[in-house]
Each structure stands twice: as C-alpha cells, then as structure tokens.
Amino acid sequence: MASEERTKEILKGLHDAVVSFDEDKTVELCHTVLDEGIDPYTAVMDGLSSGMLKVSDLYNKKEYFVPELLLCSDALYAGLDILRPAIVASGKETSVKGSIVIGVVEGDIHDIGKNLVKMMFEAAGWTVYDLGRDVKLERFVEEQERTNSEIVGISALMTTSMLAMPRVINMLRAKNPNVRIMVGGAPVNPDVAKKYGADGYAPSAGTAVEEATRLLETLRKK
C-alpha cells in the first residue's frame, strides 16, 4: 500500500504525463498504481482526468491545438485501458457525472471535433455513447431512448449537414421533451443553435463539458 506522499507523487506524475502527452510514462505509472495498491478510481480522477482538465484549459487558451490534443488523448486512453478493468474488478461504486449521446449527423464524416469532445467527456467522468459519424438521424433518438441519457450532442462541419440538426432536435423533443440538446461544429454559432432549438452550444471541444454540465444542472433542478 503506497503512502499518502507516494500516492500524491504518482497522481501528479499521471497528471503531468497526460499534459505532456507522454503515453509511455502514463502506461508505466498506471502499472505502478496497480502494483502499489493505489485506488485506480482515484488515479483516473485525480491523475488522468485532472491532466485532461489542464489540457482542456491549454486548448481553450490556444496553447494546445488538435495535434497536441490527439496525443494527450492517446495517453489518456492508454491509461484508462489499464485502470478501468481494475475499477470494475474492485466493484467499487463510482460517481458518474452524467451521460451523453454524441455523433456527427448523416452526410458528414468530419469527426475530429466529435472525437475530441468525446475524450473530454470521458475524462471528466461522463458516460459517453458515441454513435460515430454519418449517423442516421433516427439513431440519435433510438440511442437516447435506449440509454436514457440526459444530454445529446450533435456535431456537423458542413453547411448542408448542419441542416440535419433542427430535424434531429425536433425528433428528440417529440420523443422526450426533457432531453437537453447541444450542438457544435465549425459552421454553427450561438444564433444558429438558438434558431435550431438547441439548449446549448459549445464553440470548441474545450468548452463542451462545461456547457453540458450547465444543461445538466438546469435539468436536475427541474
């Protein structure tokens, strides 16, 4: 069993390894977590996720860009691959912040932004149901219903495919008036989001979790 001081050292190491997109170091430290009996859930939340929070901040400040985020993402997922089975095996209750269905609408295969958003949510402790790209509109409705997710995130990068957004939003509302819907993607702006009837809008992957958290709070207050 690691001492408190040793645990802090490992957690900081995980944080720093993710921020510096050092996948090898992340993997090494995750094995250390298991070898030294450190709680894997704590290692995820206070190490890996904490690092991703910093990455998100650097992205919002335009110090990190997509290449850096992609490598941070690789480090994060390499760490999660090691720690998640241990969390499940421990049978310990973990707190989930919320759940979200995300996807890129039909007719659009541009999914870099959506993948970054997915990573941010997973790092922040959300359950993410990723539908992928070029997603048939009814799949958003089916998946929201199946998973009972509070939030649906819809992405589009083209002016043609963004026209699918209001249709999906109407379909989702018809099935479940309580679901909160957020949109994003290069051609979308706050005015478009409002016009299409979305509850929220995120201009970048770095702000999506914050916006979803705000929507979740409005939903839970209801």
Binding site: V105, E106, G107, D108, I109, M158, T159, T160, S161, L163, A164
Partner: peptide
Amino acid sequence: VKMPEGEFSQAPTVS
C-alpha cells in the same frame, strides 16, 4: 471515395 449523396452531403469524401 464516396461521392456526395443523400440530403445532407456537401462534397466527396475519402472513405
């Protein structure tokens, strides 16, 4: 390559 088809596609894409 996938040529644009359907209601929402805008341009060819590399599949």
